[in-house]
Every structure is written in C-alpha cells, then in structure tokens.
Nucleic acid binder design. Structure first.
Length: 108
DNA sequence: AGAGTGACATATT
DNA sequence: CAATATGCCACTC
C-alpha cells in the first residue's frame, strides 16, 4: 500500500481523451490544496505506473509541466495527449473542452 | 533540527 | 498577459 494510493486511484479514473489538473486530482483524493503532492506522487510512482494514465494530468493553465527531472517524459506526455486527439495551441490545451468532469457521487 | 526544493495553485500587481 | 508573492508539504541533505 503506497502512501499515495489515493492519488493513483483518482488518476486511474481519468477517461481517454480527457485531462485533470493537479489541484483537481488533489481535491478528489481528499488532499485539498496539495497539488504539489500530486506531482511528487506521479514522479515517484513505481510499479503501477503502467496502469496509471499519468499523462492526463496537467497544470491549471492547461500546459504540460516541463522539468528537466522528467528526463523527456514531459515531451512524451504531450505526444500521448495528442495521440488521444487533444490539440495544443501554443503549448496549451483547452481545459474547457477536455477537463474531466467526474461523477462526484463516487467521491466525497 | 532547519533550510532548501519542487510534474502546483491562487491572488495580486 | 507576465511576473511576483504566498501557501502548501514531503523529501533531501
């Protein structure tokens, strides 16, 4: 049982072609205002990483968060999103069109 | 133990 | 719109 299981559980539910923000995931995981923790959890994720659609998590501006520590995974993330039919315009996607609207009854 | 850091968010200027 | 400030908290020296 990983410490960040709740975060992974939320990310796992983001549907194909849709995205969630770090803050949104934190909120749904019961960790309000801890967006940074979500980024850290995905960065540190280990075995289950293959089952987790980590590429569907973007920042509040609708951008892929770039960082050298990702060792190119940020570019992979953008490719994966484009492969799901999401268009980027000046390094940004439309949250209005693609943001995941979860069924809140299954959360808190 | 305490300072620095980071796949972030929000408010302010 | 961009830059800055502040809040946040696990983790690493």
């Amino acid at each position: 049982m990983s410490k960040y299981q709740k975060i992974y559980d939320v990310v796992r539910q983001i549907p194909y072609g849709q995205v969630a923000t770090y803050g949104q995931v934190a909120e749904l995981a019961g960790l309000p205002r801890q967006a940074r923790l979500v980024g850290y959890a995905l960065f540190r994720s280990t075995d289950n990483i293959l089952e987790i659609p980590w590429h569907r998590v973007v920042n509040a501006k609708g951008e892929v968060s770039m960082s050298p520590v990702r060792e190119g995974m940020d570019y992979v993330q953008r490719s994966r999103l484009e492969a799901e039919g999401i268009e980027f315009r000046s390094d940004r996607l439309s949250l209005n069109r693609h943001r995941w609207q979860p069924d809140l009854t299954q959360f808190g």
